[in-house]
Nucleic acid binder design. Structure first.
Length: 396
DNA sequence: TGGGGTTAT
DNA sequence: ATAACCC
């Protein structure tokens, strides 16, 4: 793999500088080995919760993948385009005033020489993203993904082992540095609510009444963000493992007929089936998501989901059987469940999601797994499985 | 304003 | 099923 750049700033994740001092203390006490906390995560012995977590954040990730694919793009101002947006751009482009999530119009205005590549197909980005995660997993299996371009790696165990091998002279030469968070965190909605309370900075949040904050935001969010405001984050690094869902979406100005929708849904599903086939696991639930046109409320979506019939699941890996037809059929029933096709409609997004992924277990007869695996057991409970109420029933 | 993903309610 | 969060 060619090299991918990592952002120069941010490098230490959740725990910050305190760690270094504690690690050194324990080094001099000559303690050995690690234990595991309630989450099963490695912590150094001695009861402290000091950890070593590396945060790897890839720089303008999509743009880098494009420059690796086509080296002629290197050195030119490059933007990655999805629909009307430049979703990311390389540093040449940033120097010339292009910003992330700028419209193509604004970007071209700022920077007429800007080279644009289409980045609506995430396949190569996704593949490269998992290559990076897999590389990091060689250092420690405890790698948590955040989006396609960020990984948190819990290196506590590795660092402890290395430290035990060092001579005392070498230890004192160890220098560790940390990073203090900037003044910004929290999501859009919460930001608005905090603003209403007069909280604009981290310091504001640190000194704000816990009780009032809990009443405003709920105890969970309140306690979480107030601890974060002091740089405290005890949340474990949760290994992401393989994805829990596969989805493909397409946005557009207008979709107002059933055939139009069906064509788009077929495209989305075809790509998904390729992906799920490569993954090897089988999805047991399918979901259709739509966004209706509305001048104001742009982020609201509606969805319907249902179980995938077991006979369809079985045919999934095997390329021969036509699995498209029954699945498109199901999706169109979900579609008509949300959209009254006898009335005019205007959609701006369609998305198909395959989730509830299950590994094909090599369950042996007579074991618990055997009877819990829908496709294997032929006993009375297998034929009619009780669906969750949330799943909308579609007749076969 | 894109095309993904996750967890909580 | 939706809402909120992350990128």
């Amino acid at each position: 793999m060619e090299k991918l750049g990592v952002e120069p700033e941010e490098e230490a994740g959740r725990d910050e500088e305190e760690d270094a001092a504690k690690a050194m203390d324990r080094a001099e006490a000559g303690e050995a080995g690690c234990s595991r906390d309630v989450h099963g995560q490695v912590v150094p012995e001695g009861g402290s919760s000091s950890r070593v977590i590396v945060h790897v954040d890839l720089d303008c990730f999509y743009a880098q993948v494009e420059m690796i694919s086509n080296p002629e793009l290197k050195g030119k101002p490059l933007g990655v385009q999805q629909k009307y947006l430049v979703v990311t751009c390389n540093y040449e482009a940033r120097k010339l005033g292009v910003k992330k999530l700028m419209t193509v119009r604004d970007a071209k205005e700022k920077c007429p020489q800007l080279v644009l590549v289409n980045g609506e197909d995430l396949t190569r980005y996704r593949e490269m993203s998992y290559k990076v995660t897999e590389l990091l997993e060689e250092f420690s299996p405890v790698v948590e993904r955040l989006g396609f371009d960020e990984n948190f790696v819990d290196l506590t165990e590795m660092v402890e082992k290395r430290r035990q091998q060092l001579q005392s002279g070498e230890l004192s030469a160890l220098t560790v540095w940390g990073h203090v968070y900037n003044d910004q965190c929290i999501g859009y909605k919460t930001t608005k609510r905090l603003e209403a309370l007069g909280i604009r900075s981290v310091h504001d949040l640190q000194t704000f009444s816990s009780k009032i904050l809990e009443k405003e935001l709920g105890i969970s969010v309140a306690q979480r963000i107030q601890k974060l405001s002091f740089g405290e984050d005890n949340s474990p690094v949760t290994p992401s493992g393989p994805p829990q869902s596969f989805s493909e979406e397409d946005s557009f100005k207008k979709c107002s007929s059933e055939v139009e929708a069906k064509n788009k849904i077929e495209e989305l599903l075809a790509s998904l089936l390729n992906r799920v086939c490569q993954d090897g696991r089988k999805p047991h639930t399918i979901r259709l998501i739509i966004r209706r046109y509305s001048p104001e409320n742009h982020c609201s979506r509606e969805s319907r989901q249902c179980p995938i019939p077991s006979h369809v699941i079985q045919k999934l890996g095997t390329g021969n059987y036509d699995v498209m037809t029954p699945m498109v059929d199901i999706l169109m029933k979900l579609f008509r469940n949300m959209v009254n096709v006898k009335m005019p409609f205007h959609l701006t997004l369609l998305s198909v999601c395959l989730c509830n992924l299950k590994a094909l277990t090599t369950a042996k007869k007579g074991t618990i797994d055997y009877y819990l695996t829908p496709s294997l057991s032929t006993t009375s409970h297998s034929g009619k499985r009780s669906f969750k109420m949330k799943d909308t029933h579609v007749e076969d």
